[in-house]
Computed example of a mutant assay.
Amino acid sequence: MCVTRIQATAGLSQSTVSSYMSTLERAGLVRPTRMGKWTHHRRDEGRPAEPARAIGTTL
């Protein structure tokens, strides 16, 4: 999903959404893909499962 669509859906400014997406990218939760002048983000399916696996094997 591109920042413009997230912005419209969430009712937030472009700079706020871009900042949030950068934070999520640094955390490894989303992956950006550049398509022309647009950057599309999608969640990284493997990353959120890691803590759940760690908790499951620790308990």
Rank of each mutant, 00 (worst) to 15 (best):
A10M: 09
T4Q: 13
T39G: 00
L29I: 07
V17Q: 02
S18A: 05
T9M: 06
W38D: 10
E45F: 07
G11V: 10
Q7I: 00
S22R: 12
T16G: 06
I6H: 02
D44N: 04
S18G: 06
S22P: 02
R53Q: 08
H40R: 11
S19F: 14
V3F: 06
E45G: 08
T57M: 11
A52C: 04
T16S: 13
R53P: 00
M35Q: 12
M1F: 12
V3H: 03
R43T: 14
H40Q: 07
I55P: 00
S18L: 06
V30F: 09
A49N: 02
Q7D: 01
R5A: 09
A27T: 06
E25D: 05
M1S: 04
T4K: 13
P32G: 03
R34W: 01
R43C: 07
H40T: 11
A8Q: 14
H40S: 08
R47G: 01
G46N: 02
R42E: 12
T9K: 04
T9N: 06
R26N: 15
Q14R: 14
L12F: 04
P51K: 00
A52K: 04
Q7P: 05
A10L: 15
R31I: 15
H41F: 15
A27L: 15
S13M: 04
M21K: 11
A8L: 10
R53G: 02
T9A: 05
T16Q: 14
Q7R: 11
T58A: 15
G46D: 03
Y20I: 14
T33W: 11
S22I: 00
E50Y: 07
W38F: 15
T39C: 00
Y20M: 05
R5I: 13
G11F: 12
R31L: 05
G11L: 09
L59T: 08
R47F: 14
A54M: 08
T16C: 11
G28N: 06
T57I: 12
G56R: 10
K37N: 12
T58C: 08
L24V: 12
I6W: 01
R53E: 10
T23K: 11
